[in-house]
């Protein structure tokens, strides 16, 4: 990987020689990549290339799938997340995740946002209200829901539900947010609202986002990683990936001449 070693931005994740198997299926092959602080990193590639697998490995959610094996290292702020002494629960308070299909709990909007803070032991009513408001404001949902915080989250539209899930994630105050195709279940208007949101969140958070839309990657990301058949083919500045890719396979994919 080409890297400007002189003024290197902070590295949040340093993935080194990561391999992953589902039983016999070799789903990630020797992946090396660094996710940089306050950057939006897009992960693109054809379906089945291992995008979801990769992003779920970063917070070890992948371990909920039986029969998964990994090798290699993933350093999160310099600490190997596969380390025996590391508690995944603790890691996941720092690494939030937003899923493909909005998955709010069948509870009120209020309970959804404060789920994280409450299970982590925050009881102070005033603090909880502060967290509620800032999280909903940061996810651009506050104005739409401030008068119906006690309503069930299932009454919201798909786009609102996804922003609620982002708010729920922000309420734990993570450093980095992992998103797995967060707009693929949404209409174009809801999608552009989420994209605007990501642009704003970038100031305070690091974001890694899987997307199957190259336009989306081009619009919102600083760096783009192109995966193919479990391999990281190319990882570079987004403009460079889209204007002047170095690998023929990347170029084929970008230009839609993909086989």
């Amino acid at each position: 990987m080409r890297q400007d070693t002189n003024n290197l931005p902070d590295v949040v994740y340093d993935v080194r020689g990561l391999n992953l198997w589902y039983g016999e299926t070799h789903a990630l092959k020797d992946v090396n990549l660094q996710i940089l602080k306050n950057h939006v990193t897009a992960i693109i590639g054809p379906s089945g290339c291992g995008k979801s697998t990769f992003i779920k490995t970063l917070n070890r959610m992948i371990e909920n799938v039986p029969g998964v094996r990994t090798s290699g290292e993933i350093l999160y702020h310099g600490r190997d997340i596969f380390d025996k002494d590391l508690r995944v629960e603790e890691l996941r308070t720092k690494v939030g995740m937003v899923f493909q299909k909005p998955n709010p709990f069948p509870k009120s909007i209020y309970e959804n946002v404060l789920y994280g803070p409450k299970i982590h032991g925050i009881k102070n009513k005033q603090l909880l209200m502060e967290i509620l408001e800032t999280s909903l404001k940061a996810s651009a949902l506050w104005d739409e829901v401030k008068d119906r915080l006690d309503d069930n989250a299932y009454g919201l539209s798909g786009g609102q539900q996804q922003r609620l899930c982002i708010a729920r994630c922000l309420a734990v105050q993570p450093d980095i947010i992992l998103m797995d195709e967060p707009t693929s279940a949404l209409d174009p208007i809801a999608t552009s609202r989420i994209e605007e949101l990501i642009n704003r969140l970038k100031k305070d958070y690091t974001i890694a986002i899987v997307t199957h839309s190259m336009q989306q990657a081009a619009r919102i990301s600083d760096r783009t990683a192109y995966f193919l058949l479990g391999e990281l083919v190319e990882y570079d500045y987004t403009e460079r990936i889209f204007s002047n890719p170095r690998d023929q396979r990347t170029e084929d994919y970008i230009t839609g001449r993909f086989g």
Binding site: N64, E89, E90, L91, R92, F99, I119
Partner: peptide, 25 residues
């Protein structure tokens, strides 16, 4: 399963997830 995932992804332990998400439903 996606509701359990929502809980685990926020750092909830298995029991917390069972108690707060699975059992009420």
């Amino acid at each position: 399963g996606f509701l359990r995932d929502g809980s685990y992804a926020m750092g909830a332990s298995k029991w917390t997830t069972i108690w707060k998400v699975v059992l009420p439903i």
